[in-house]
Design a protein around this nucleic acid. Structure first.
Lengths: 333, 333
DNA sequence: TTGAAAGCGCTAACAT
DNA sequence: ATGTTAGCGCTTTCAA
């Protein structure tokens, strides 16, 4: 068995409560005593048992993060950043994925909910009702999902899209295609349409499709029919499908067609040509979401009734264009 | 507060121990009683508190997995597969990364060790001594690291390499280059050298480098000097660097040079041209590693002295070539 | 400033 | 087959 608080207590010649305080409320114990305890603890290799702590009611010290798909290259950097941030704040992060299916998401939530102090649900597939019910039982933050009354982190593509439109305009493009592959409630289409119209760029929307490589391959064959010289894809994976098929068709990128992705995953920087894309900073979103959850946990603790708060917070994360080699001047025609 | 075993007990009109047994030893309670308990539990939305369970000594129901880098595209599918497997077996998986640095790995281990029943250490940076010490304190499985006395999962590239050599030979290649970017103790070089020699293929080794995209870019410029017509890269990322630079140099892949990666990450299937690579099945390795750890946990529980076992198990995971578009006949010359 | 003791939810003797 | 109860390690009143 591991070393317990009692052994530290007897080694330091104090009671267990003093040892406990030495860790959780250091200023309540005499400096000399505290030092003696800390030394004894170090000597014995003591560290508090988290199970006992959380049983006692102190919370689990763990944040839960449910993402649609761990294997989607967009998420690993976010997970990594959130782990780092959380550790810094004394938390651990427990990650699970929902596979974009409600049943799996419920299972994932059930599996982690008793082990965490709160939950970050990314693009949740759950109904509003269920989310509200869940939020009533534990601190909750949703990302990329708007549910009134639940704290939210929202990714805004507006800035990145506007920059993309500007770049394409400056390069002389006139007709563009957007490959849409969003679930309805997450659609990326609307804001894009507006940004492009504002600059007098025509934008045809294809889809909605599944956000897969093959979607890009398929959509690429449709670009010519629209007489478009630029393509914005739903994400980097789809954009790579476009690049792939353009190469097959003997269409040069960016000479004949410019291609823009979204997410700035690893894929974008290692493709050939490297992919111009709209970056969403993983560290920022991870940090903001983690902090928001911790804040929500803090507000929930020691509150009796259900949230009579003012409006629940909404944090917005920006985006920006990362110009790389897949965009360039429109063909002379 | 959440619903406890006591509330279920009174709702079902039985004692807490009967409720406990209804969950942990169903056959020890009368079917009718059990059903009544299960109904009451469902009604109340009861689920056992894992903190209480583990405090009681029942283990945490969690497996720890420390990988070098969550953001390395090789790992997410493995993490995902291990989660799935573990959930199936009633476990949760807690993942952390070591960033390839001993200090970070120690911190990660410290952060999770009290929350898990055992640990899978992937390509651990720790010294053998530390690993032995750790193994003395908790069930341990190492992956891609050989430490006598510690259960181990080992990835064997032999089969995949042999198939690669055969393919290149059949395509008429004679001179090849291997871009090595391994830490010494993990080196992929030796077995490759042997496989190629066995088929009378000349293999020059470049490096060791860091396993990054830029390494591939750099190494690509060196291939011509070796008069090689085929390149095997340390992993897919490095291979993409090669593809990228070959395109820059106006060298056609696979017409002029064939390129082979290792890992079969997402990158390989979405590159242009798609990348021939050596696949290590993420599900297999995740399953085997998870199962081995659970087995090790089971053997440790209820054993008194330190392991006087027979030799600790070593599980070997195979590999195979996935032919795609980046390999083809050697140029006629 | 420090100590004694109750109790968090659960399981496993032990008793019936 | 079911009930009673001690105790896992810790924090936190309450007392001194």
């Amino acid at each position: 068995m591991a070393v317990t608080i009692r052994e530290v207590a007897s080694a330091a010649g104090v009671s267990v409560s003093t040892v406990s305080r030495a860790f959780t409320a250091p200023d309540q114990v005499q400096p000399t005593t505290r030092q003696r305890i800390l030394d004894a603890a170090a000597e014995l290799g003591y560290s508090p048992n988290p199970a006992a702590r959380s049983l006692r009611g102190g919370g689990t010290g763990t944040l839960g993060l449910i993402v649609p798909d761990i294997a989607n290259p967009f998420f690993p950097p976010i997970i990594k950043a959130m782990q780092a941030r959380a550790r810094h704040l004394g938390y651990t992060v427990l990650v699970a994925d929902s596979d974009e299916r409600e049943a799996d998401e419920m299972a994932a939530i059930a599996a982690v909910s008793k082990r965490v102090d709160g939950l970050i649900l990314w693009a949740s597939t759950l109904t509003e009702d269920r989310l509200h019910e869940l939020a009533g039982r534990m601190p909750l933050v949703v990302v990329n999902r708007h549910v009134p009354g639940i704290p939210e982190v929202r990714i805004s593509l507006a800035a990145g899209i506007a920059q993309a439109a500007e770049q394409l305009k400056a390069y002389g493009h006139r007709r563009c295609v957007f490959i849409n592959a969003s679930r309805a409630e997450l659609s990326r289409g609307k804001s894009i349409q507006e940004s492009f119209e504002a600059l007098d760029l025509s934008l045809s929307e294809l889809g909605p499709y599944e956000p897969r490589f093959e979607t890009g391959v398929h959509a690429a064959t449709l670009v010519a029919a629209h007489e478009a010289t630029a393509v914005i894809a739903h994400n980097d994976v789809v954009a790579l499908g476009v690049l792939h098929q353009m190469a097959n068709l003997g269409v040069s990128v960016p000479r004949d067609v410019s291609v823009i992705g979204i997410d700035d995953t690893l894929l974008a920087s290692v493709s050939t040509p490297s992919l111009t894309t709209i970056r969403i900073d993983p560290e920022e979103i991870a940090t903001r979401a983690g902090d928001l959850l911790i804040e929500t946990i803090a507000n929930t603790t020691g509150r009796t009734g259900p949230g009579l708060d003012a409006a629940s917070p909404i944090v917005e994360i920006g985006s920006r264009l990362i110009p790389r080699a897949s965009t360039g001047p429109a063909p002379a025609h």
